[in-house]
């Protein structure tokens, strides 16, 4: 059994035990396991500490109140990150008011784009990737994080963004293209 499988089983065991006994220690363990990553994502997407703090609180309250409805077919981490991204994207959309958070919302992109290989992004130096992610539209950043940081499947991302699978595939393609364009502009010597 790999590390991921062990982690998944432990999450489910904690959830089942908490739902059966309502022992707060089980939920506390779940909270401590995910709080760092959830808060980190909130900071990364929302940028402001007070917004990230409020978001993390609301996200964990939502997790707690809906724990009984968690469908065990999915990984608990997938469910947690889905709630996190849904919440943060809602906050961003309300702040922007226009609702434009993807590059294809804001500019007309060519229909035929050279496909950017995953390796090109995955092997970027992390400090440079961080700069690139902060320069691209927030929706593009979120979709790349969902795909490459959290390993969410296309159907999960589609559910979070309320789009079809094919629309998500196109958005990922465009987000990768945008990221590569920004990288080439910022670091032309490479």
């Amino acid at each position: 059994m790999g590390t991921e499988e062990i982690s998944k089983e432990q999450d489910i065991d904690l959830i089942r035990r908490y739902l059966a006994t309502k022992d707060a220690r089980d939920f506390t363990l779940l909270y401590r396991r995910y709080s760092g990553k959830v808060y980190g994502k909130c900071i990364s997407l929302l940028k402001e500490e007070h917004l990230a703090r409020d978001a993390a609180q609301d996200i964990f309250m939502k997790i707690f109140l809906n724990l009984g409805q968690f469908a065990e077919q999915a990984k608990f981490s997938t469910w947690v990150y889905s709630i996190t991204y849904n919440y943060c994207i809602d906050v961003i959309r309300k702040k922007k008011k226009t609702g434009d958070i993807f590059s294809d919302d804001m500019e007309r992109l060519p229909d035929m784009m050279e496909d950017v290989h995953d390796e090109a992004l995955l092997t970027m130096q992390s400090d440079r990737l961080r700069v690139v992610l902060d320069k691209i539209p927030i929706g593009d950043k979120a979709i790349l994080l969902m795909k490459y940081q959290d390993d969410l499947q296309i159907k999960d991302i589609a559910s979070i963004l309320d789009k079809t699978d094919s629309a998500i595939k196109m958005k990922i393609k465009r987000a990768k293209h945008k990221a590569q364009m920004v990288y080439d502009e910022l670091f032309p010597s490479d």
Binding site: S35, G36, K37, V38, Y39, G40, K41, I43, S44, A52, R53, A56, L121, L122, T123, M124, Q125, S126, L129, R130, L133, L144, L145, Y148, Q149
Partner: peptide, 18 residues
């Protein structure tokens, strides 16, 4: 190597939840 996951680990360390 996955730089995305590396960023996540760095953020979790740099921004511990209050």
């Amino acid at each position: 190597t996955n730089s995305f996951k590396q960023i996540m680990e760095e953020d979790a360390l740099a921004f511990p939840p209050p």
